[in-house]
Amino acid sequence: MSEKSLSEAEYDAITDAAAHWCMRLHASDCTAGERQAFAQWHDADPLHAFEYAAMLEIWDVADHLPRSEPVAVVVPFKPRSRLRTYAVAAAVCLAALPLAAFTGWEAGWLPSSYEHFDAANGLRKVTLGDGSQVELNLGTELVYSNYKNQRRVTLKKGEAFFKVSHDGNHPFIVRAGEGQVRVTGTQFNVWKYEDQVRVTLLEGSVQIASDALHASVPLSPGMQASYHTGDAAPQVAVTYPNDAGLAWRQGKLVLDNLALADALPLINRYLNKPVMLADATTGTIRIGGIYNINEVNNLIPSLPKVLPVYLTQNQDGNPVLNSIPRKTPKG
């Protein structure tokens, strides 16, 4: 998005307004009148919408920070103009959270950098501020924040392969769904779809913890952990070299004789309208093949040609797979 030719004071005013609305809309006593006023402000200028979206990302990151008793707010550095990290606005948002406060960078509450990455149109490789390299699958979105005592990534959706720059004093934490991955330096893959998360470790070691589990589960190379929202503990399994689950890095989707119930989450992440199953019986039908991730849309109409299924559509416009009943032999 191109920035308008506004003065620093005008930019600050918009940022302050975005922080104010972010706080008010998250407050329990926010009124209908305030929500209407926000909508008018938000729609009045594309820059208002842009700044508010950035503020929501900061709020999302802040929501996973530790809590303590309220203390004085201190901002130990000046944010960069134009390409600033919204540090002051982050301070305003954080101070508004229940029992949330911080003493700035020195206390490990305020990030020195904040970066947003997405791969809306294709695979993408990025380098984070700490030197770590990340490969983003199609449709992936994540944010990176650097704190004094840790480096933190929030995987909002999609899949990413991490080559983490080693720093024993600053753990690297990936937040995905209702859990997190903690490392110091290693190579691993994180896949997230709806409330499902799967972590595959290639090199080094990581600790996996779900929100419902107080202790963490260690992984060694060649192991994989998965969890859903509400799981008491991640499920751990052994993988094998050249796991097909990492074929996306070459732009491929590999379905290795999977039941449709297991294959659809892998397929749906590439679709605007996810495919649904008519019933559990349909979910047991198996599918295999290698597909280009940019052409997964073409896979769905072709399924009735290779599987005993037919397509319908539900009231929300989603394609629905239905199994074709087997004919009972006459006898």
Rank of each mutant, 00 (worst) to 15 (best):
M1F: 11
M1N: 12
M1G: 15
L6I: 10
L6K: 12
S7D: 01
A9H: 12
E10C: 03
D12W: 05
A17I: 09
A18L: 02
A18N: 04
H20E: 06
H20D: 05
H20K: 14
W21D: 01
H26D: 09
S28V: 09
Q40G: 07
Q40R: 15
D43S: 14
A44L: 03
D45W: 03
L47P: 12
F50E: 03
F50G: 01
E51W: 01
A53V: 02
A53R: 01
I58H: 14
D60I: 04
V61S: 00
S68W: 13
S68K: 15
S68H: 14
P70W: 01
V75Y: 00
P76W: 06
P76A: 08
K78T: 11
T85Y: 12
Y86L: 09
Y86I: 03
A87K: 04
A89S: 13
A89Y: 00
A90G: 14
G104M: 07
W105V: 09
P111S: 07
S112R: 12
Y114G: 02
H116P: 09
A119S: 15
A119M: 07
N121L: 11
G122F: 13
K125G: 04
K125M: 11
T127Q: 13
L128Y: 07
G129C: 07
G131T: 07
L136F: 08
E141T: 04
E141M: 00
Y147G: 00
N149F: 09
Q150T: 06
T154N: 13
T154C: 08
L155N: 03
K156Y: 12
E159F: 08
F162Q: 00
V164I: 10
V164P: 05
D167C: 11
H170C: 07
F172P: 00
R175P: 04
R175G: 07
A176T: 09
Q180M: 12
R182A: 05
Q187D: 06
Q187H: 05
F188V: 09
V190C: 03
W191Q: 05
Y193Q: 10
E194I: 11
V197R: 05
L201K: 03
S205Q: 01
A209Q: 15
H214F: 11
H214N: 10
V217A: 01
Q224D: 10
T229N: 13
A233H: 02
T239E: 00
T239L: 01
P241Y: 01
A244R: 05
Q250Y: 15
L253Q: 10
L255Y: 00
D256F: 10
A261E: 05
A263T: 00
R269S: 01
R269K: 15
L271I: 03
L271G: 00
L271S: 02
V275H: 12
L277V: 10
A278F: 08
A278E: 04
A278D: 10
T282Q: 06
G283L: 05
I287H: 02
Y291E: 08
N292D: 15
E295V: 06
N297S: 12
N298W: 14
I300Q: 00
P301L: 10
S302N: 13
P304L: 05
P304I: 02
V306H: 06
V306M: 12
V306E: 06
L307A: 03
V309C: 05
Q315L: 14
Q315P: 07
Q315D: 15
G317T: 01
G317I: 04
N318K: 11
N318P: 09
I324S: 13
P329E: 06
P329V: 07
P329A: 08
